[in-house]
Write a protein that binds this DNA or RNA. Sequence first.
DNA 1: ATTATACACTGATATAGAGAAGTCATTTGA
DNA 2: TCAAATGACTTCTCTATATCAGTGTATAAT
Lengths: 255, 255
Amino acid sequence: MIDEANDTIDRDSYEPAYAQLVRILRRQIATGVFRPGDRLPSEAQLCERYGVSPMTVRRVINILADQGVVVAEQGRGTFVKPLELGTAIFDLDRLQQLFRDESQSQVKLLEVRIVPATERTARKLAIEVGERTIFIRRLIFQGENPMLLHREYVLYDPTRPIIEAEMEVTSLRGLFMGGNESALKWGDLAIDATVLTDDEATLLHSEVGAAAFRLEHIFYDFDNRPVSWGWFICPGDRLRFTAKVGIHDQETNNP
Amino acid sequence: MIDEANDTIDRDSYEPAYAQLVRILRRQIATGVFRPGDRLPSEAQLCERYGVSPMTVRRVINILADQGVVVAEQGRGTFVKPLELGTAIFDLDRLQQLFRDESQSQVKLLEVRIVPATERTARKLAIEVGERTIFIRRLIFQGENPMLLHREYVLYDPTRPIIEAEMEVTSLRGLFMGGNESALKWGDLAIDATVLTDDEATLLHSEVGAAAFRLEHIFYDFDNRPVSWGWFICPGDRLRFTAKVGIHDQETNNP
DNA sequence: ATTATACACTGATATAGAGAAGTCATTTGA
DNA sequence: TCAAATGACTTCTCTATATCAGTGTATAAT
């Protein structure tokens, strides 16, 4: 099973030695040469086997370790991690794609108003009830079809230049693509399951009571103060979050 | 702003030098010393500034790079990454906790049957329509309350020992916690938004039409053949996926 | 003025090796 | 017989050094 030709480091290759070794070991794990719970060869053995220095092997093990493929225990060895559902990682790629291609998606501003903060808004934005906030409602289209409904409360602060930027249709793209040089530092996100209300269904060309995702967000500035709070609504039949767990033998996806 | 005492590597500390430097740089980015788009000091400068070797700085930069905090460009420098929504990572921690404490959660087997594969099942499991599969229905409780409904189709193969293990109530825990030495290599996961059907609502003590998550899974063995396909149903008011984007100054969460 | 070259600076990769610290089986001593 | 000490492993951290490869700028030649 172990093919010598495919398990040797090619020093003339463009691909660095450490990357080759990562690939080789991942492949061996993926093909069952090393199975969950097994101990990998020691670092010294790997050095000799592949003709690389200890530091290079060290680096490889580190990479595999924080890829979650193996776990190294000092004094005992390096072991292949069993499959864990909890380590699944869901990302927002699909949502991101919406904003990647500007020609196929557009943002329609439905409403911009200055409103006093309600109890809930005040709590989320860490301000007093009644303080002024900017309420924004947007509808995001993919092609001809409405895809997302966005509601957002932004802190009203005339000294901040964010406000105008927030009202621009392109600001959303900035948030998703990272093109903005904004004062935003970090944010909290949460995904809920919900059903469409009357007006949501109308705007999104869907039906009342249809399943939907609710993606809530709070963004903070460099002083750790909330700047904006809002959420996206997306009908469940138009979005799906996917992930992979375990090793998926990147290259050779032969059936 | 830069406090010398907090920006020095303590060689007597238990915390390794590279970890300290990661923390220091993250903190400086989080507090706005370096802002998105800024260039970090060069590696040589960091060596001199903190009194560590180039390899150590190299390691620090690498760590920050695959944490997504910075991006290094050969010949130009290392730059602080702007906030990107798309990089948000949602995990299944909440679901994992369900199985962590066995005393507070239990699995009730509702149904186990051998059924011929329907068109959809056959497609998912890459088998022929009519081939035998094992259909399993489970209800997972947290304390006294039903939390998850699980449906699963497992490949019927007498030579495989998985089947019996799958029927054990503890097998689920194994999947989530990684305790099993199984023949499973990897899996595909997907999260949908849906609404509860009649029987789902009854079993989960909820209401028909209530918002719910649907977590679908397919697991594969070392030959890349599907072994099982199924999904969890969880009412939306009992589960929430959360994530953080950007830098969140891990330690100092002072308001 | 324009183009081509050389050089300094950046990160990227890799080597060799030392010492620390954890684990485990064996040996030694009471 | 039991417990402590030993030694052989393991991974972990870090230093020091070297070479390669991009990037940009200043300088020299055209």
